[in-house]
C-alpha cells in the first residue's frame, strides 16, 4: 500500500487548530452577535469538521472517489434539511392558512 505518510508535527498542528477553534466557538457564544451568532457557530463547526475530514481522515490525499463520497453525504443532508425547511418556512405565506 503506497501511502502518503505525514509527520507528527502535521497532526499536532491540526490538533492545535482544532483546540483554538473550540475556544473561539465557546468565546463567540458569549458575545451577542444577534442573528449572526448561529451562522458564526456553524462556520466554525464546519471548519473544524473539514479539518478532521481532510487531514485526520486523509481525504486531502485521497482519490477523487473519496472526495465524491464525502461530498455526497453532505449534499444529501442539505437536501433533507433544505427541502423540509422549505415546507415549514413557506407555510402561512400569502393567504394560506398558517399551521
Amino acid at each position: 500500500m503506497s501511502h502518503n505518510i505525514s509527520s507528527l508535527g502535521y497532526y499536532l498542528r491540526v490538533f492545535a487548530t482544532l483546540l483554538i477553534l473550540t475556544a473561539a466557538t465557546v468565546g463567540a457564544a458569549f458575545i451577542d452577535f444577534g442573528a449572526f451568532s448561529t451562522p458564526i457557530a456553524m462556520t466554525i463547526a464546519m471548519t473544524k469538521g473539514l479539518l478532521v475530514v481532510l487531514f485526520f481522515m486523509h481525504v486531502w490525499h485521497s482519490k477523487k472517489l473519496t472526495w465524491l463520497f464525502a461530498a455526497a453525504g453532505f449534499l444529501w443532508l442539505v437536501i433533507l434539511i433544505g427541502m423540509t425547511f422549505g415546507d415549514i418556512v413557506s407555510r402561512g405565506w400569502q393567504g394560506q392558512p398558517a399551521l
Binding site: T25, A29, D32, I44, A45, V52, V53, F56, M57
Partner: peptide, 30 residues
C-alpha cells in the same frame, strides 16, 4: 487497513460531536 477503518469511524464520531456541541450547549448564552 483495519486500523484505517477504525480511524475513519472514530473521526466521524468526533465530527458529529463537533456539531452537537455548539448546537446543544452554546445557544442562547446571551
Amino acid at each position: 487497513s483495519a486500523l484505517e477503518l477504525m480511524g475513519l469511524y472514530w473521526h466521524f464520531v468526533d465530527i458529529v460531536w463537533i456539531f452537537l456541541f455548539p448546537l446543544l450547549y452554546l445557544i442562547g448564552r446571551t
